[in-house]
Write a protein that binds this DNA or RNA. Structure first.
Lengths: 197, 197, 197, 197
DNA sequence: CATGAATGAGCCTTCATTCAT
DNA sequence: AATGAATGAAGGCTCATTCAT
């Protein structure tokens, strides 16, 4: 019989461990991060980490996969047949860029997994599947925009990949994070990729 | 007194070790790659790796820094005040993209270092310095193009960063490498970032 | 929160490890003794040794320095202005020789450190400081004895060094340990060094 | 066919290697001294050391045993039935002490072997055999002196062991070596052990 | 003969995991 | 449930030895 109070405490601790783990995995990578480091940063005993998450591998899995769900939902949240394509695309890009910037620590981690997909095949597959859905949705948007003649010609797949690459590429470059006004400018510039007239 | 024959042989072995190391570091990351793995792949005794490169850390340094020099030289090899900016930029982008694609294994490694710059501060500083020079040269090109009114308005720094980010971002995406015709298309699309009229 | 029972158990194990380490270091020297040997002799996992003492170097330090404190206290425990100098000196020597004999394993270790002082500078400095205090105390005793004309002439420093050298020299010779009656005889003989009339 | 010139050169090199080895073994001990260190100090290629002396163990054996022969001969060179025992003993002790002091590096090495006899059983046996002969000769001297009533009573074995221990003990203490006048004083003091009247 | 490139056995150390409290 | 003492697998590195030149 576990009281709500205790359960609440547990959840808080678990969240603290997860946050610490994400930060350390992002900064140092999988192997260079020790369970003891994580426990210390989360201010729990290191046995506790094992109790909550099982093995280190499972913890890493959770670190990468769990925050990805809400993120991808946000990223996919745009209208694929808006009235004004330029306006919708601009809004989408701005949203994306600010999202990426807000989650920079997590994205540093994500970039590692993507950059070493052979090392994390299971996790990568999961990530990739979802990212492909985002890609599909982008293609849909582009195709519609081109059909409506609000966007200039160009292979939609190429545009979608280029755009996603630009987003992740900006993550790589964002040493010390960009100030807000620069983010705005990146957004404005990225629109060009879509062939907005 | 070392004969030329022996020296030649050594050079060959050294190159073989380096190639193996780059491939394994790129695929698995620094920690997950063992000296034994490298030696095995290079078909030498693992003591030999130590004899050639000292420590694992030094080997990694060499793996990242040594191939970077010729690469960055190639990347910086474009005319900053051409007659036709659109043509020069298109040629440059095509060159860049094909270079990146040809060196995909090495670039996977490079992306790791950039993505975890806190973990490899010395190497990153070296890389970053050179990359900044490339960025400066790009800015020069863009400023000139804008002055000549062959390129539309836009903050040159933002454009340069966006472009470099796109290049590295494409590296991240290039799982299993793109076919040649897709590379051409990426090049064509990337031009848009520069505001070519 | 560690229970007393656990803490007790740990102390016992720690003592067992230390004893094993002293014996093996004494017999084989620092480098020739492996952490695995020590763990095996102490009947613990070899990770445990590291948990308790950190590194091999720290363990060695503890092995040499920790038992030295009580020993030197005992060695310095004599009266520097007794009524009868011959009697006090005889008692002191007997005590010293029996102490050395009782701690023969530890002293074999100590002799190594002294004999290779360049190799163990920090430990040696610590040992040397204390030994010098013993030497000073011996000199005090001798000077007093000479002033009281109970001891014959002779440079006190020379006598003190000779005596200490004799003690350590006997350690070197004591292969398989001397029987008790021989120890008595050594004590009787060593008195001569002090110029007892 | 090896010319004398070449043979001479070899002998010189060999001697240089041996000297370097003794110095390094004495300072750092057997394991902590590497073949490469020795080769470097002797200014020869490290393959050469192996060519000359075979294995490291054989080299160590040579380092300890070879210089011992002439040393022990010198140490045993005293008259066991002199006219004046006090004079003979004084001369002997002075000779011994100056010999020990002159060969301090080698003796540091010797002390290691004696102090860790279990580790070097073969070498120790050899050393011990010869040292016992010295001890026997000392006993002979003492017995004769006592019979002639030039030396006071006392178990000759005890005296001999004490004296040899003192000699080796002084080696241990001689950090930075004693000045000549102190050596004289040690000699004068050591005479007391023999019960010179 | 003299050399040093090549090698792999063996060691210290780190660290994920287990389990008793 | 939470903890950390205990453990041993695994990796980097050192270094004696071998052997081709």
């Amino acid at each position: 019989m576990v009281s709500d109070k205790v359960a609440r405490k547990m959840e808080l601790k678990k969240a603290r461990v997860l946050e610490a783990a994400i930060a350390l995995f992002a900064e140092n990578g999988y192997e260079a991060t020790t369970m003891a480091d994580i426990a210390k940063k989360a201010e729990v005993g290191f046995g506790t980490v094992a109790t909550y998450f099982g093995s280190k591998e499972e913890l890493f899995y959770t670190c990468v996969v769990q925050p990805f769900q809400p993120l991808i939902v946000e990223l996919k949240d745009f209208n694929v047949s808006p009235t004004s394509y330029p306006k919708e695309i601009e809004a989408m890009i701005r949203k994306h860029i600010f999202l990426f910037n807000a989650q920079d620590v997590y994205l540093q981690l994500l970039v590692q997994v993507i950059g070493q997909y052979e090392k994390f095949p299971v996790i990568f597959a999961e990530i990739n599947k979802q990212t492909n859905e985002l890609q599909q949705r982008l293609i849909e948007l582009i195709v519609n925009g081109q059909n409506e003649q609000q966007l200039s010609e160009g292979e939609p797949l190429i545009i979608a990949i280029s755009y996603i690459s630009l987003l992740f590429g900006l993550c790589l470059s964002s040493v010390g994070n960009f100030p807000k006004d620069m983010l705005e400018q990146f957004a404005t510039r990225a629109i060009y990729l879509f062939g907005v007239k």
